[in-house]
Amino acid sequence: MAEQRSPLPFEPKGSGKVAKEPAGAKQEAIPRYVADRMARRVAVFTGLPSLAGMGVFVASYFVVTRDIAEIPPGATLVGSGFFFVLGLVGLSVGVLTASWDKEPGTLLGFENFKPNVQRMRESIRAQKQTKANSKD
C-alpha cells in the first residue's frame, strides 16, 4: 500500500501518497545520458540566440553613439526580439533533437525530431489515460 506523508510546499492537494518501490529499483523517465545531451543542446540552441539578442543592443548603441548610422529604436527592438524568440524556439529544438541512443548522433540532430515528437505524444496520451483511469 501507499504510505501517507505531509505534502511538500506548492504540491497539488491529494498527492501526499508515496508508492513504495523495491530496494534498488530506480525508474527514470529520461536516462541521464539523454538528459545531459538535451541540456547541452538547449544551452547551445538557446544561449547563442540570446547572446545575439543582447549583442543587437550593444551593436546598436555602438553604431548610434559613434555617429556611424541612425538606427531607429524600433529596429533595435525588433532585431533583439527576433533573436530572443529564436532562443525560445531553441528550447524545444534542443530537447526534441537529442538522440536517445547511447551514441550522441549528428551535430544538429534533426533526424531525431520526428521520433522524439512521437515519444512526447505517447507520453501525453499515457498520462491522460492514467489520469482517466484513476478517476474511475
Rank of each mutant, 00 (worst) to 15 (best):
A69I: 05
S6P: 07
P72A: 12
V78F: 11
L96W: 10
L48E: 01
R121Y: 10
S6L: 14
A23I: 06
T65Q: 13
G24F: 03
F57P: 05
A98P: 01
A19G: 07
S15A: 08
P31T: 02
K13T: 10
P22F: 08
P104E: 01
R41S: 03
S50K: 02
N112Q: 15
K114L: 08
A2M: 13
A126F: 05
F62N: 10
R125L: 12
N112V: 01
S50F: 11
Q118D: 15
S60P: 01
F84K: 04
Q118R: 11
A98H: 01
F82I: 08
P12D: 10
K13W: 10
V63M: 09
G74D: 12
V117K: 06
F45T: 00
S60Q: 06
L86R: 01
F83M: 15
N133W: 12
V78G: 04
A35I: 02
L86T: 05
M54F: 10
K135I: 08
A35F: 05
F10G: 10
A75C: 11
W100E: 08
Q118C: 07
K13A: 15
P115R: 02
Q27L: 15
G94M: 01
G81P: 02
R37C: 02
T97P: 06
T65S: 13
I124L: 14
G79A: 08
E103Y: 03
E70K: 13
K13N: 13
A98C: 05
V18K: 03
G81M: 04
S80F: 00
E11V: 06
F62M: 13
K114H: 08
T106C: 03
R121K: 15
E28R: 15
F10V: 11
L91A: 04
V78Q: 07
R37K: 05
Q4S: 13
G94S: 07
I71Q: 01
A98V: 00
A132H: 10
L77E: 09
F110H: 09
F83D: 02
A39K: 07
Q4P: 15
S15H: 14
N112G: 04
V42P: 00
K20A: 09
P73M: 13
P72M: 08
W100F: 11
F84C: 03
E103I: 04
F84S: 03
P104Q: 04
A43E: 08
V42A: 01
V34N: 03
L8P: 04
R32T: 10
I71C: 05
A25K: 14
D36R: 09
R41H: 07
T65A: 08
T76A: 11
A52W: 00
A126V: 05
L88N: 11
S80R: 03
G109T: 02
A75T: 11
A23L: 11
T76E: 04
T106M: 00
G81D: 02
Y61F: 12
K114G: 07
W100M: 07
V56T: 00
S50E: 04
A2P: 13
P9Q: 05
V56Y: 00
F84Q: 04
